[in-house]
Design a protein around this nucleic acid. Structure first.
Ligand SMILES: NC(=O)c1ccc[n+]([C@@H]2O[C@H](COP(=O)([O-])OP(=O)(O)OC[C@H]3O[C@@H](n4cnc5c(N)ncnc54)[C@H](O)[C@@H]3O)[C@@H](O)[C@H]2O)c1
Ligand SMILES: NC(=O)c1ccc[n+]([C@@H]2O[C@H](COP(=O)([O-])OP(=O)(O)OC[C@H]3O[C@@H](n4cnc5c(N)ncnc54)[C@H](O)[C@@H]3O)[C@@H](O)[C@H]2O)c1
Lengths: 245, 245
DNA sequence: AGGCGCTTGTGAAGAGGTGCACAAATCGCG
DNA sequence: CGCGATTTGTGCACCTCTTCACAAGCGCCT
């Protein structure tokens, strides 16, 4: 995405932080490895094999090794990976060494749940500010944070050095909110509103849409239903299955 | 996934519903097209070109045409696609013609928001039952639905003919809940708990993990930051960018 | 009726991701 | 010190997905 490839010239090799230029699919899996690694660290494991970690993360072990190989050789053959070292490396690559400040816009039904969620802080994200357009919500305190009016976004964003914006407003307001976020310099947006956002180049948008997830499940349900009409056996094998994200 | 390919023998051609066997990437995009189509229908459009629909859905028009071609030829050359016809076709393929019943397990912070969300019903999903393990929550009424104890799952699942289960419990409880859902015959699960679920073959699991989304954004933020240290211009082009799901 | 412009549907090429299989590397032990 | 057990890192083949480019098809206008 917006990334030019120069096959012959690997983006100024030999620089200080190396900038590995990871495949997107790998980036999407690193957080899963990280979670599994934290769980292993908590249970006292010092090293883990690719097989063990792959199991814990629910992926193929070859895939895991290839993913990790992209960020350098941090494993020991015959032994495995040092859990704490690998955690450090992945967190470094993901840019989690610095705590990132998040602004949440739209403190409604969903916004409340997000604001009260402790899973952000534990992963190195700090919800730094809450915004809403509804005057009756402004001033409300949630989890130690006061809801501010969205007009204050510009000022607060700078004060709190916001780096990620989360949109939890109704869909019709989402584009306007995105524009405001972009205007104050936010270049990463997580969008919960069911709509496509148009943003300038250089701004990353990821979306979470529950209805889409359910519809995908519905399709597979539908397919399974039309399949059970004819095939041989419904022998209950115990192989496990998952769907790629 | 768990789907055998016989290149020479296209899965008993000539059957009644045809069962198009769509690429997974296409299935994931159909709901987006559907949303865009509904928006177009609401604004009075009767037909739409691949270019127009692709724009509304935020994808490449060639990709959209290929996606739609997988479910048959429902466009008219020189004109475009009939909006209502296409809606019907996509809904039919996704299995949305019948309303699917959803069971939500774990009515906490996030569960409350989900239970009160009206975006499900409008997409053909019905939240048919709410469950929690906490006795103090059982009996509570949310959006016209009473929270039941999770032990009643087996009975209620059959009564309400549940086809999709949503897990919004803390991570340590998620696997047990998944097992219970599978035990009562649920073959599609949407998991919000940050953990991997192990399920038998034939059961589909999709997960939504906000921390992962934020970490992916963090990576790109990190990359952009290390990039701005050296390159030529930050010329504000107005091309828009999105990240694949 | 015929031509013209527009749009679909698709072949083909390329890019990216996956998983196997194995050589290379490391550790522990005799 | 050497050997075998173990595990990483990766070359390779395969597969899926994306994107381009264009012929075929359709409607409209003259
Ligand atoms: N609730 C859910 O479980 C759920 C699930 C999936 C998706 N969503 C989506 O998330 C979004 C929020 O859902 P919700 O249930 O919380 O809706 P909600 O109506 O409860 O909350 C929306 C909040 O956004 C505020 N708002 C509106 N316009 C605004 C603006 N311009 N600037 C700032 N704030 C503004 C409103 O005042 C309100 O407080 C919706 O787009 C919805 O489709 C919600
Ligand atoms: N709140 C958020 O915004 C958010 C965001 C992302 C992910 N999550 C994840 O979603 C899950 C729920 O989050 P939350 O904030 O609602 O937590 P919560 O603690 O508020 O709610 C969890 C609920 O699950 C119930 N529960 C526990 N064990 C159960 C069991 N065995 N069977 C049925 N119910 C059970 C609890 O009684 C509680 O009501 C967590 O895994 C969390 O990590 C939450």
């Amino acid at each position: 995405m917006s990334q030019h490839r120069h096959p012959g010239a690997p983006g100024r090799a030999g620089a200080v932080p190396a900038l590995p230029d990871l495949p997107e699919a790998t980036v999407a899996r690193l957080p899963e490895y990280l979670r599994a690694l934290h769980a292993l660290a908590d249970t006292g494991h010092e090293t883990v094999s690719s097989e063990g970690l792959a199991n814990a993360a629910g992926v193929n072990s070859a895939k895991l090794r290839k993913d990790l190989s992209h960020l350098g050789s941090y494993g020991t053959r015959g032994v495995g990976y040092d859990v704490t070292l690998l955690i450090e490396q992945i967190e470094s690559v993901l840019g989690l060494t610095q705590c990132r400040s998040v602004a949440l816009v739209g403190v409604g039904n969903l916004g409340h749940a997000l604001a009260g969620y402790d899973g952000f802080a534990s992963r190195g994200f700090r919800i730094a500010a809450l915004f809403d357009a509804d005057p009756s919500r402004v001033g409300e305190e949630i989890n130690g944070l006061v809801v501010r009016h969205v007009d204050e976004l510009a000022r607060v964003a700078v004060e709190e050095s916001i780096s990620i914006g989360v949109i939890a407003t109704p869909a019709p307001a989402a584009q306007a909110v995105a524009d405001q976020l972009v205007a104050v310099g936010v270049t990463s947006i997580l969008n919960f509103a069911p709509c496509v956002l148009s943003v300038p180049e250089g701004v990353d948008v990821r979306k979470v849409d529950l209805a889409i997830e359910l519809q995908i499940l519905s399709f597979h349900e539908h397919r399974k239903a039309s399949l059970t009409a004819l095939p041989g056996g419904l022998a209950a094998t115990d192989t496990q299955e998952a769907i790629g994200t």
